[in-house]
Amino acid sequence: MKAKIHVSAAILATLCVISFFSITLLVELFGTLDQVAWIKSIIVFPGLFILIPAMAITGATGASLAKHRKGRLIQEKQKRMKIIAANGLLILIPSALVLHYWASLGQFNLAFYTVQVLELTAGFINASLMIMNANKGRKLAHK
Rank of each mutant, 00 (worst) to 15 (best):
G123Y: 03
S104F: 10
I125P: 00
F21P: 01
I50Q: 13
L105N: 07
L118E: 03
N109V: 05
Y101N: 06
I5H: 02
A10V: 07
F108I: 12
I57M: 15
S104Y: 10
L48W: 06
A60F: 15
L33M: 09
P46N: 06
K136C: 01
A66H: 12
I50M: 15
W38I: 14
Q116C: 05
T14A: 11
Q78Y: 12
C16K: 00
F20T: 02
L25F: 02
K2N: 10
I11S: 02
G137V: 04
I5R: 06
G88E: 03
I74K: 14
L110Q: 12
K143W: 04
N135H: 03
S104D: 05
I125F: 09
F49R: 07
K79L: 11
G71E: 04
K77I: 14
G88F: 01
R80W: 07
T14Y: 00
A54E: 13
G88R: 05
P94I: 08
I52N: 13
L26H: 00
L129P: 08
N87Q: 00
L110F: 13
V115H: 05
K67Q: 10
H68W: 05
G137W: 12
L97P: 02
F108P: 15
L48M: 14
K79N: 09
A63H: 14
V27Y: 02
H142D: 02
N135Y: 05
A96G: 10
A86H: 01
A54R: 09
L140M: 08
R80V: 04
S95R: 04
E119S: 11
L25N: 05
R72C: 08
N133W: 08
G88D: 05
T61S: 15
S8F: 03
Y113N: 14
I83H: 06
K82W: 08
H142K: 07
L120H: 08
I91P: 00
K77W: 13
V27A: 10
K77C: 05
K2M: 11
M1R: 09
T61F: 12
L97S: 03
N135D: 01
E28W: 01
L25C: 03
A103N: 07
A56C: 15
C16R: 01
A9M: 09
I131S: 02
L99M: 05
P46Q: 04
L12Y: 04
H100P: 00
K79T: 07
Q107F: 12
S128G: 10
G31N: 03
I42L: 15
L73I: 11
R69F: 04
I74M: 13
A111E: 09
K77F: 09
I93M: 03
M1E: 07
K2A: 12
L51V: 08
K2E: 04
I131E: 02
E28V: 08
T14H: 02
L25D: 01
L51G: 06
V98I: 13
N135K: 08
L15D: 02
I11L: 13
L105E: 07
N109W: 14
A63S: 14
L99P: 00
I43C: 09
S19F: 11
L12A: 12
F45R: 04
L92V: 04
L15C: 08
E28Q: 05
R80E: 09
L48T: 08
